[in-house]
Design a protein around this nucleic acid. Sequence first.
DNA 1: TTAGGCATGTAAAGTGTTACATGATTTG
DNA 2: CAAATCATGTAACACTTTACATGCCTAA
Lengths: 189, 189
Amino acid sequence: MDVKTLCLGLLSVRPACGYDLKKTFGTSFKHFFPAGYGSIYPALADLAAKGLVNCEEIPQVGKPDRKVYSITKAGERAFIDALNRTEPQHKLRSEFLAMIYFADLMDDNRLAEVLDDHVEQLRETVRYIEHQEMAGSKTAGASFVAGFGAVIAQAAAEYIESHRHMLTPAPESEPQEDALTNCKWAANG
Amino acid sequence: MDVKTLCLGLLSVRPACGYDLKKTFGTSFKHFFPAGYGSIYPALADLAAKGLVNCEEIPQVGKPDRKVYSITKAGERAFIDALNRTEPQHKLRSEFLAMIYFADLMDDNRLAEVLDDHVEQLRETVRYIEHQEMAGSKTAGASFVAGFGAVIAQAAAEYIESHRHMLTPAPESEPQEDALTNCKWAANG
DNA sequence: TTAGGCATGTAAAGTGTTACATGATTTG
DNA sequence: CAAATCATGTAACACTTTACATGCCTAA
């Protein structure tokens, strides 16, 4: 399932222009399937060429015509079809985790910064989803997906905070007395 | 950070051939940075051309020479440098979630199948990490990353199981009596 | 007056995925 | 006897990302 198919899906909910779709990809879809103009506009042109969507150009003053795309019957069929045929992949690509894998080669300050930033980003994601997405979700699917994002981000933030001590050799000030300090899996119930 | 840089990082741990690296990308790195031969072999050739790794060809019978790559001083510097400069992205691309977003357009059986399969896959990931990765992790970073993967997969599986009822209109047999059944965020503490 | 929102798109570069091509040895 | 493992690589294809190109309106 690519950006093109997802555009089709979003247009099955309501008509929209490329700019509108970009907003959706940049907010609701951001945490699991972000996309930019460079993918969206060609996708829309392609869908229109295949007769899966119609395009109505609405003249505007001071900006380009607003091209409002709406799904056709053929488009609806094609989307349902894609939904049933596509196998649901779920791929993470995390330079963050790759970096942490090599934490022992990193400068301590840099490591702390990377960890702090990532946790903050995750917490912001949780806040955003809980305030913006959950409130505004109309379909069950949208709510489920928003909730999923929030729960995962929350779990990730908690894991990082409760396990980051694993990554730093010693708390520098006092020499450790407790053997559990070095235990790899403490707090990993 | 691309596959090339990660190959360099893995070679900073120990010398290896392309085949060995593929195994790492397909096991330890699978849940956050998978890669295939098509990325790895060109990456190694490139690293060698830049003098960041050396290549020793070990003749074998019945199979191609084993090309064992080892990192050079320049390679070590380059990797540390990449570690400090690269900004740690963390991107999910989930056709699974995209699909679920449109759950109301899906056939009930298909939806159940997709959900079941994904949960099973997540549980398998947890099992794998706990049995294979956690036991064999040598560095703190490797352990941390393995634990992260297990915790997230676990949380995802639990979320799906406890919230999938949101996606199906009614439990078919008996008409629902409890108003909470339809509550969007039940069990979302 | 400056930043942000609205609104369209293209083109090149970068990367990864998949399929292809080969072939002996080992394990069940 | 079949399947998996070991071991190399290339080439085409697909797709996304990023930079570029344009320009008015509105709110702070």
